[in-house]
Design a protein around this nucleic acid. Structure first.
Length: 267
DNA sequence: ATGGTGGTCCTACCA
């Protein structure tokens, strides 16, 4: 089984790119973030026609939005809300006789890493903290139901030194500040979850899933960050058989997303 | 310290 996550930055603008990814990589489940479209306008038929009849979609006009697209039947789907905002950042599904999958889009957090002056940064921290309070019980409930848990998405935080191009230069930049990294680590610990990409790639090696649109030449400067993550409960980590980050997708013409797909395989 | 690009939708706002 293959599961993939991708911040697509408008699913309607880049639908051809998504379909190309499905054809080339054949994931069983694809989790999209920043779909930027309401549920009624989501391009569901394009996925139905390509063998993905099972969709769970949450969206608002113009912003955010998450969608989980599956070849495997979904037993249950649920949209979750955090910080009292119904802003389409979290959708959960249960695969038939399979794991529970949480598809997340964590707030970006604005420019200034100070929760007292930047409301967006405060929201980002509160969002991750609310997840941290919720996750232990969610994992417990899934386990009681004999299910493993997968948590994927654009977490907008690069936790390890080699998840950014320059640890030293990024310490004060939103996405790699110590307070965010600690919040993300606390969330991971709360679920006792394993970072599936780093299960394969040692912490000493650089690993990125996002490159800014603002670079003159993203590939030459290679100032990337690993913002997109796949976490699994320990029972699933034993069954991981492969992974990939599709760096090439950052160059897919004519207008790529600034994020690329991240995927893992399970036995 | 500044400005660099791209998305939605039409005026800024978000990334």
């Amino acid at each position: 089984m293959r599961i993939a996550t991708w911040n697509i930055n408008s699913v309607r603008l880049r639908i051809e790119m998504v379909l190309h990814f499905l054809e080339a990589y054949e994931p069983d489940v694809l989790c999209l973030q920043e779909t930027k479209v309401v549920k009624d306008l989501f391009p569901a038929s394009a996925f139905h026609e390509r063998g993905y009849p099972h969709l769970a979609v949450a969206g608002i006009k113009g912003y955010n939005g998450v969608a989980t697209i599956s070849r495997i039947p979904l037993e249950q789907t649920e949209t979750l809300t955090w910080c009292g905002r119904d802003d389409a950042r979290h959708i959960a599904v249960r695969l038939a006789n399979g794991p529970e999958i949480h598809n997340l889009y964590v707030p970006s957090g604005g420019d200034t890493p100070d929760p007292s002056t930047n409301e967006k940064f405060a929201h980002k921290l509160a969002f991750v903290e609310e997840l941290t309070s919720w996750l232990p019980e969610a994992v417990h409930t899934a386990k009681a139901d004999n299910r493993e848990v997968i948590l994927v998405g654009d977490m907008n935080i690069a936790p390890l030194e080699n998840d950014v191009w320059s640890h030293k230069q990024m310490l004060g930049i939103v996405s790699h500040t110590p307070v965010e990294v600690e919040a993300l680590n606390a969330l991971q610990r709360a679920g006792a979850m394993v970072d599936a990409s780093r299960h394969f790639v040692p912490a000493q090696e650089k690993l990125y899933s996002w490159w800014s649109y603002r670079a003159r030449d993203w590939a030459a400067s290679d100032r990337g960050r690993r913002l997109d993550h796949i976490w699994v409960t320990p029972g699933l980590s034993e069954r991981l058989t492969g992974h990939g980050i599709v760096r090439d997708a950052r160059g897919w013409a004519p207008k790529p997303s600034d994020h690329v797909p991240v995927w893992v395989d399970f036995d």
